[in-house]
Design a protein around this nucleic acid. Structure first.
Length: 498
RNA sequence: GGGGGUGUAACUCAGUGGUAGAGUAUCUGCCUUUUAAGCAGAGAGUCGACGGUUCAAAUCCGUCCACCCUCACCA
């Protein structure tokens, strides 16, 4: 027998008593006539008609006084008080009622009325247990003071909230809202893209080679094939194969996995929407991004502006478009447009930007941008024209071989999206991937690998294509006013306990 | 990885070397319109883990673990 503490033992004893009374504590079926919200919506009607109703839910409050008791029942839609009187439910059923604990699932039959204290309640005629809870929920109480809800002993330990998210959802009602908004954001991404005739696709999560981003993968193993497989770090290369295959507008919503550091804005698995459109370029992707996010904001928030923890952010079109080099010059006065490595390196040394052996001018420019410009980009901004060196899958700018047609979207100092005019020249693509492979040999574990199958696909021909990826978790953070990604992922990665 | 912080009952937290505490929750009794119900009583702890100092450690020291903040890293 387990070493149960007192509270758990008592609940198991009550379970036993219920069984001895011939009550099934876990019946197979329940029947409800109304969700609690429906009772509140037609309060007067239910009180007047005294019609019999049946609700189901979790017992979320209990005030007993001898031969009468008040409880609260909560279902997904709301919460209502029940009034249980021995004379009304009968002696046997009252015994069952007395064996109930907070957290038990119950079914209550009765009719609606208003108590002496003026509270809308259900006068119970019968209380049926639907599921006995064997573990006490943390106790949170609420009192209304001057119309404001004050909470006592809130379930607030952050670690516990993440490890036991079910309790967090149950006890901290505001949390559900984050996830409802998350669902709505995803729904609106879908409906927006569907309305623009994009087709939703599914591509492999388990990949023999990974690519499409600068990141370390998770490795796994397939027993039958006896090969190592990688969890995808991006959707890009498979989507491009589909563009080669003749689809012109596709998108996928799904998870990527990156074996990297974790912090407020990074979880090892995170959700992205990636889309590819044939005969489009990065300007088309900018317009699409604006339209999509404005659409989501209007549908989810009902507004094109948002107050993010005191910062006013406006999604009103058009968003600023500025080149990375111009932004660096604007912010620091430094002109890196000549890509002069020694000059740029000197600037980095001066500003304590670390330089690795594999770092070239392009990477340094990106570093300078990250340090000086990124945090300043509060309003939605398309940062365009990235160094070619850090963008092996994007097409060169026709008038500048050092740059590619690529943008990243920044809002509130964070990156939200990444898009290119996709590189469709198979020979150029091969050179770029081989250059990545060299970086890899020199110790850059996150450099791209050469994917021959992908290169072969490109050789068959890919139309000019625009591609876009947007981080869904961060978008949800923005729309819910959260600074931690853990607040918008149901089960964020945590170290195992013990 | 560096720096800072937190870890004590189911929950929220007090407790700076001398018998482990409070409120809520739980249990018992009273209570047939309460709502943070009330009154009276009771039970409940590996003080994150391990080691050390001491007559004596939740408390001092060391190591480790988890989480938070911050910096670094990270497309």
């Amino acid at each position: 027998m387990e070493n149960l503490n007192q509270l758990l033992a008592i609940r198991r004893q009550k379970l036993q008593k219920l069984k001895e009374l011939g009550i099934d504590p876990y019946p197979n079926r329940s029947e409800r006539t109304h969700k609690i919200k429906e009772l509140w919506e037609n309060k007067d009607k239910f009180v007047e008609s005294e019609q019999k109703i049946v609700i189901t839910g979790r017992l979320s409050g209990m005030r007993r006084q001898g031969k009468v008791g008040f409880g609260n029942i909560s279902d997904e839609s709301g919460r209502i008080q029940i009034f249980v009187r021995k004379d009304n439910v009968g002696e046997d059923n009252y015994e069952v009622f007395k064996l109930l604990d907070l957290g038990d699932f119950v079914q209550v039959e009765g009719n609606c009325f208003i108590t002496k204290m003026g509270e809308y309640s259900i006068r119970a005629e019968k209380v049926i247990i639907l599921g006995k809870s064997l573990r006490p929920l943390p106790t949170v109480k609420e009192k209304v003071i001057d119309g404001k809800k004050q909470r006592f002993d809130e379930f607030s330990d952050i670690e516990l909230r993440y490890r036991k998210r079910y309790l967090d959802l149950l006890l901290n009602p505001g949390i559900k809202k984050n996830f409802e908004i998350r669902a709505k954001v995803i729904e609106e991404i879908r409906s927006f893209l569907n309305s623009r005739n994009f087709m939703e696709v599914e591509t492999p999560i388990l990949q023999p080679l990974y690519g499409g981003a600068h990141a370390c993968p998770f490795t796994t193993h397939h027993n039958t094939l006896n090969i190592d497989l990688y969890l995808r770090i991006a959707l890009e290369l498979y989507h491009k194969r589909l563009i080669v295959g003749g689809f012109e507008k596709i998108y996928e919503i799904g998870k990527n996995f990156r074996n990297e550091g974790m912090d407020r804005t990074h979880n090892p698995e995170f959700s992205m929407v990636e889309l590819y459109q044939a005969y489009a370029d990065y300007y088309d992707m900018m317009n699409l991004t604006e339209d999509m996010i404005v659409h989501i904001a209007k549908e989810v928030l009902g507004s094109e502006t948002i107050d993010f923890l005191g910062k006013d952010i406006s999604f009103k079109k058009p968003w600023r478009r500025a080149s990375m080099l111009d932004l660096i010059k604007e912010e620091t006065g430094f002109d890196a447009s000549d890509f002069d490595f020694e000059k740029i390196k000197a600037f980095c040394d001066e500003h304590k930007i670390e330089i690795k052996s594999t770092t070239g001018s392009g990477k340094l420019i990106e570093e300078i941008f990250g340090k000086f410009v990124e945090p300043k980009l509060i309003q939605p901004t398309f940062v365009i024209d990235f160094p070619k060196e850090v963008s092996p899958l994007a097409k060169e700018k026709p008038d500048n071989p050092n740059l590619v047609e690529r943008f990243e979207l920044f809002i509130n100092g964070n990156e939200y999206g990444n898009a290119f005019t996709e590189l469709n020249d198979p020979l150029d693509q091969r050179e770029r991937l081989e250059a990545q492979a060299k970086l890899r040999e020199m110790g850059d574990a996150e450099a791209n690998v050469v994917d021959e199958d992908f290169l072969e696909a490109l050789e068959y021909g890919m139309p000019p294509t625009g591609g876009l990826g947007i981080g869904i978790d961060r978008l949800v953070m923005l729309f819910t006013g959260n600074t931690s990604i853990k607040e918008v992922i149901f089960f964020p990665q945590m170290k195992p306990e013990e």
